[in-house]
């Protein structure tokens, strides 16, 4: 089975689950959808809300809204995943509007992280996150030090005891592996 076939089959299954929810069979279909999307929804919530509690609230609110809008879902317009992340983005935007969501200690200077302009950006970044998690340990280690600790190539070379050329090669080859993984999902990044 090709990747496209597998995705089409998954999309059809998920559309059936939403249809069941719309017809009042809520618990089991919702559990299945929750388990498929919980991690990515939570990560998205944490990314745009910057707080674990708010991210959890966004996840809960997203599934509440999914239930309320299940009858309006049209599989011809797109996947359940895209539909759910449109909802999640809207829920996150609403949570950000509440004064009570803003950190007290930085009330005057506080800036929210940027909210993605469209759901494609959200889905692409989540796919990239998954691809990063599947990289070989040598590539992942270098990229993790760049992304999580903002280390330069020279600093990574010193930290890991590697030649700087090796660090550069691992960085570039890791990025090539990521781009390849994205390409398999139809996402093309230069």
């Amino acid at each position: 089975m090709s990747l496209d076939d597998a995705e089409a089959r998954l999309a059809a299954q998920e559309a059936q689950l939403v249809d069941q929810i719309a017809n009042g069979n809520i618990e089991e279909p919702m559990k299945q959808l929750y388990r498929r999307y919980e991690k990515n929804l939570y990560r998205f919530g944490l990314h745009v809300l910057g707080d674990e509690g708010l991210a959890e609230e966004m996840v809960q609110e997203s599934f509440q809204r999914l239930w309320r809008s299940a009858g309006r879902y049209d599989a011809g317009r797109g996947s359940v995943g895209a539909f759910l992340f449109v909802i999640a983005r809207s829920a996150a935007a609403d949570i950000r509007k509440r004064p009570s969501s803003r950190p007290m200690l930085q009330a005057e200077d506080f800036q929210w992280p940027p909210l993605p302009d469209n759901v494609d950006q959200i889905l692409d970044s989540l796919i990239l996150r998954e691809a990063l998690d599947k990289l070989s340990s040598a590539h992942a280690e270098v990229l993790r030090l760049i992304l999580e600790e903002s280390l330069t190539q020279a600093e990574i070379a010193e930290r890991l005891g590697l030649a700087i050329g090796t660090v550069k090669s691992r960085t570039f080859n890791g990025m090539r592996a990521l781009r390849s993984a994205l390409g398999e999902r139809g996402i093309h990044a230069a």
């Binding site: 990515n40 939570y42 990560r43 998205f44 944490l46 990314h47 674990e52 991210a55 940027p114 692409d124 970044s125 989540l126 990239l128 996150r129 990063l132 998690d133 990229l143 760049i146 992304l147 990025m175 990521l178 781009r179 994205l182 990044a189 230069a190």
Partner: peptide, 13 residues
């Protein structure tokens, strides 16, 4: 372009 995307990744939580 990939570097830009990587800089805006959601956390691995």
């Amino acid at each position: 372009q990939l570097g830009q995307m990587l800089q805006h990744l959601p956390p691995a939580a």
